[in-house]
């Protein structure tokens, strides 16, 4: 880390960080409201978490411990790159352990381990506007938010039931925050929606391309929209994790061979590894604590 001086701390200049912090504070003051901000070019393409990275860069300090996950995993390209980025430009400690992290930047998952007060969860958001696919005009959607006209959101859910017999939306499932703003929780599976409700952690959302920041302060009501006769429900899995035998967690399907072999494993790799270290064994777990095949444990 000799080249730390090449960058300002955490890459962004101080004026930019102040601007983003102001947007974050406004977002916290108005839970669920999308605050426009002057999103910067980042050394990564849009869609790879430029919004989340800017939020993280603005709130991170030298004493923070950063965890980055991508679809629940600590060891995928996006997560590894962003973690390496902050180790380089901010020289902060990084971890894969949910409990010891102070800032967790995430793409599309909320960790299985319950978050605690003082932790900050930073979401990477591709499309912050939950009404976008129903109403293409930004002027109109902003007016709808301002006047609390959210009938259209239920039109989407109605269409789901009419076409599929149930609410078929499984990710980016719209929520109402503190009884006021309808918010897109980013493309997390709806399995994670209940974890947002009255979470003790601060939740920040950054959309770099769309130039919006929004926030859910700790202990805020987050209610998933539904119908009285078609209540909100999360995905269920009919088998436990094949490696750690965890139940009531979100599972990923992993293809094992060309003959239809597959297994369901925890999408949260940290959670899965901890359970296996504690001696939990799924029906496909090898004798050692390594995953099957030639995979090495995540660093």
């Amino acid at each position: 880390m000799t080249d730390i001086a090449t960058y300002n701390f955490a890459y962004l200049d101080e004026q930019t960080k102040r601007m983003i912090r102001r947007a974050i504070l406004k977002g916290i003051a108005i839970p669920g409201y999308q605050v426009p901000f002057a999103s910067r070019e980042m050394p990564m393409p849009y869609g790879w978490g430029t919004g989340g990275v800017q939020v993280t860069a603005s709130i991170i300090g030298p004493d923070d411990v950063l965890k980055v996950i991508d679809q629940g995993a600590d060891d995928t390209t996006n997560a590894v790159s962003i973690r390496a980025f902050f180790r380089k430009v901010a020289n902060v400690a990084v971890t894969t352990d949910t409990a010891t992290a102070t800032i967790i930047q995430t793409r599309h998952r909320i960790p299985e381990h319950p978050l605690s007060a003082g932790q900050v969860l930073v979401y990477q958001v591709p499309i912050p506007e939950p009404l976008r696919f129903l109403e293409p005009r930004e002027t109109e959607t902003r007016k709808m938010h301002a006047l609390e006209e959210y009938g259209l959101m239920h039109v989407k859910l109605y269409e789901d039931i009419a076409k599929h017999g149930r609410i078929a939306t499984t990710y980016a499932y719209p929520v109402k925050v503190e009884g006021r703003y309808v918010m897109d929780p980013s493309p997390t599976p709806k399995f994670d929606n209940p974890k947002m409700h009255r979470s003790p952690a601060l939740q920040l959302f950054g959309a770099g391309r769309e130039k919006r920041i929004y926030a859910v302060p700790p202990f805020t009501d987050v209610v998933s929209l539904d119908f009285e006769d078609h209540p909100f429900e999360v995905q269920t899995f009919d088998q436990p994790c094949a490696l750690c035998a965890a139940e009531n967690v979100y599972l990923d399907e992993v293809i094992l061979d060309d003959h239809g072999g597959h297994m369901f494993v925890c999408s949260d790799t940290d959670h899965c590894e901890k359970r296996r270290a504690d001696g939990h064994r799924g029906h496909l777990a090898p004798e050692s604590h390594l995953a099957p095949g030639k995979m090495e444990p995540a660093q």
Partner: peptide, 27 residues
């Protein structure tokens, strides 16, 4: 009309806009 949502949702939109939250009744 909203041309990309079904006829039923077109009729139901106003009901949902005034707070109707029962799919069966709306339909």
């Amino acid at each position: 009309l909203r041309m990309t949502v079904s006829a039923g949702a077109n009729v139901g939109e106003r009901l949902m806009a005034v707070g109707d939250r029962h799919y069966g009744k709306i339909r």
